[in-house]
Amino acid sequence: MRDVTLTDIFMHPITQKYLKRSGIAHALEVANHSFHLAFKYNVSVDLATKAALLHDIGHYEWYRQGKWDYELYRENDIHAIKGAERAHKLLIRLGESPQKAKQISVAILLHTDSYLPEIDVNRSPLQKVVKLADEMDEEKGGGHHYKQIDYGTALQKIQYLDKLVDQYLPKQQLPHEKTV
Rank of each mutant, 00 (worst) to 15 (best):
R2Q: 11
D3F: 11
L6K: 01
D8M: 09
D8H: 14
I14D: 10
Q16Y: 00
R21E: 07
S22A: 15
G23Y: 05
G23F: 04
A25E: 08
H26Q: 01
L28M: 05
A31Q: 04
N32R: 11
N32Y: 10
S34Y: 03
F35E: 04
L37G: 00
L37D: 02
K40Q: 15
Y41V: 04
N42P: 03
V45D: 03
D46E: 14
L47T: 08
A51W: 08
A52N: 04
L53H: 04
L53W: 08
L53E: 09
L53R: 06
L54I: 05
L54G: 00
H55I: 06
I57Q: 03
H59A: 09
H59F: 14
Y60F: 15
Y60C: 13
Y63K: 14
K67M: 13
W68F: 15
Y73N: 10
D77Q: 11
D77G: 14
A80P: 09
A84H: 02
R86M: 02
A87Y: 06
I92Y: 02
G95V: 09
S97G: 15
P98H: 10
A101R: 08
I104Y: 02
I104C: 05
V106F: 11
V106A: 02
V106T: 15
S114W: 06
E118D: 15
D120W: 09
N122R: 10
R123E: 07
Q127W: 04
K128N: 10
L132A: 09
A133F: 06
D137A: 14
E139W: 07
G143Q: 13
G143K: 12
H144V: 00
H145A: 04
Y146G: 07
Q148L: 12
D150G: 02
L155K: 10
Q156R: 11
Q159M: 15
K163C: 12
L164E: 10
Q167M: 13
Q167C: 08
Q172W: 10
Q172E: 14
